[in-house]
Design a protein around this nucleic acid. Sequence first.
DNA 1: CATCGAATTGACCTTTAACGTAAGCTTTTA
DNA 2: TAAAAGCTTACGTTAAAGGTCAATTCGATG
Lengths: 154, 154
Amino acid sequence: MSDEATHKIGDLARMFGVTTRAIRYYEELGLLESDDRDGPEHRRYSERNVIRLKRIQQLKDYGLTLAEIRELFELARLDRSGAAVRASLAQKYRSRLEEAKKRREALDAYIDDLSWHIEQLDRVEDFFGCPGAACAACRWAERCDVRSLVTRGA
Amino acid sequence: MSDEATHKIGDLARMFGVTTRAIRYYEELGLLESDDRDGPEHRRYSERNVIRLKRIQQLKDYGLTLAEIRELFELARLDRSGAAVRASLAQKYRSRLEEAKKRREALDAYIDDLSWHIEQLDRVEDFFGCPGAACAACRWAERCDVRSLVTRGA
DNA sequence: CATCGAATTGACCTTTAACGTAAGCTTTTA
DNA sequence: TAAAAGCTTACGTTAAAGGTCAATTCGATG
């Protein structure tokens, strides 16, 4: 399978709808390589690197930051190295996993809250006056644990 | 229940372990009120506002940005207003909900990937050589849909 | 009532992310 | 042999959540 460095930076840019600046930036971050150049020659990209750029885009859509993507690539690069390296990587990634899970919990709670708020907003008849237990304002206060935030009926 | 404006800004700062600058910043953003002042008098806070600051901290821990918190408060403030307002708010919040759900999906995918990576890292015996179908590197490539990212066996 | 710590406003500073943009020069290619 | 495309260098941008002066004023206490 031939994999010559045939594409120019502008080609990649057009392929993926990004700017050349972005591509150079990825290189700057160590995310994407162009083939070896001596001086300030024009960059050339092999199919392999085209695919890599595609992968970057994928991961970006996916919600990862460029830093995270770089770490994943690094992980891949060290994939077959010694056990010590892998252990420390695993450790590092476990803590990242914890963080991510925490973020997900917070996000879930947020989604839950938003849903509740929307539900209340949709339920028109609940909103005027303060019919006791069914009063949205009161339930709101209860939910938010901030009784003084909401003015009670009248 | 008495709710006089008795606390000074430094008191709140100490109570919650934040700086006075932060508290003023919250006021600047419309998150927190101090009681009406004429000129540049010292700010005074009633119990109500202490609770409000507590709520802000809660929501921050919770993962929300100050802007999001402000919006939630605004929502609470408009709670009992007319149907038109509520409808438009509901609309707005529905789109926020969509966004949040998307973010959650991305986060889930990320968590899934990370878990997988960690699992592979832990499975020491998979990592040397390329024993065909069980080769972590190859499966990695498959999973990542980037065959050229990982060097095949030998 | 004098004083000194606490508070006030205003203005600019900081950090990170992911590039944008400009300038001036060099490679490639038609 | 030019135009088109690319190169490097380097400063600009936007948003979040305050930090950090600086110069001044409040206000509680001896």
